[in-house]
């Protein structure tokens, strides 16, 4: 039920964004959420209800792996990191995304005559 309100995100995009966020460094769940919020300047507010199932999904597919570690505040937290497959998937997804968005924006910007 919690996922229903998380519209605005194209289906499957959330996985890509998480992979992208993890491309820099391993992070824990809360951190990933905050980072998405920050980078998107508040456009994507991803709550726990969609984040955690996505983690589970990605982990299942072998794209990320998890590890319990201490945080900077000396708490234990589960850190996620990209696996080689995850990195490959991200590269592919980024490329696809660019091709698609470029095409879509060309169509959206097209003048009447062109259509």
């Amino acid at each position: 039920m919690a996922t229903e309100k998380q519209s605005g995100l194209v289906q499957g995009t959330l996985d890509m964004l998480i992979l992208k966020t993890l491309a820099l460094e391993p992070m824990h769940g809360y951190g990933i959420g905050v980072r998405l919020d920050q980078i998107s300047k508040g456009v994507f507010q991803v709550n726990a209800g969609s984040l955690f199932p996505a983690f589970r999904r990605l982990e299942r597919d072998g794209l990320i792996k998890a590890e319990w570690r201490a945080t900077e505040n000396n708490r234990r937290a589960k850190y996620y990191a990209l696996t080689p497959q995850g990195r490959a998937r991200l590269a592919r997804a980024a490329k696809d995304w660019e091709t698609q968005t470029a095409a879509i924006s060309r169509i959206m910007r097209a003048s009447l005559g062109e259509i």
Binding site: M1, A2, T3, N47, A48, G49, S50, F52, P53, F55, R56, R57, R60
Partner: peptide, 17 residues
């Protein structure tokens, strides 16, 4: 509030596999 329903989240996570 940010976390939402813990049980619902757990259910959603469990539903992945």
């Amino acid at each position: 509030v940010a976390l939402g329903s813990v049980e619902a989240t757990k259910d959603a996570v469990r539903d992945v596999g």
